[in-house]
């Protein structure tokens, strides 16, 4: 079943890349959310999938009694989700700020840092 979700990751990445290339910061944000999720899913799938056995140790036992899901990728994904959220939060504020300051959401029109006349 990893195969199935590997394909899912691929579709998400494709959609995300296309959105990020769209020259619109809102669509870029959409793409960013998608591609972050795809990356998290990649880690999760890389750690292999186990259906219905959370990595918890039951009371009275010293170790899980059955083959439980791989805990390490879960911890990594959790960290990655949180970090991804931090980055995303900054990015959305930046987009908002770009709109209020530069009055544009099309990054190709933002030419203050690299003005066109300077390059002629």
């Amino acid at each position: 079943m990893e195969f199935l979700f590997a394909i899912t990751v691929g579709v998400m990445v494709s959609a995300a890349v296309y959105l990020m290339l769209s020259n619109n910061l809102l669509r870029f944000i959409f793409g960013l959310v998608l591609i972050s999720n795809a990356a998290n899913l990649t880690i999760f799938v890389s750690g292999r999938l186990t259906d219905g056995a959370p990595p918890l140790i039951p009371e009275g036992a010293d170790a899980p009694l059955v083959d439980v899901a791989n805990a390490l990728p879960q911890a990594l994904v959790l960290t990655a989700i949180v970090i991804g959220f931090g980055l995303f939060a900054f990015a959305i504020v930046l987009v908002f700020r770009a709109w209020t300051t530069l009055n544009s959401l099309t990054p190709d029109d933002m030419r203050l840092a690299e003005p066109e006349e300077a390059q002629k």
Binding site: F44, L49, T50, D51, A53, Q74, V77
Partner: peptide, 9 residues
């Protein structure tokens, strides 16, 4: 995540 046993995530 739920189906594949990652409740915290």
């Amino acid at each position: 995540f739920i189906v594949f046993s990652a409740p915290d995530v």
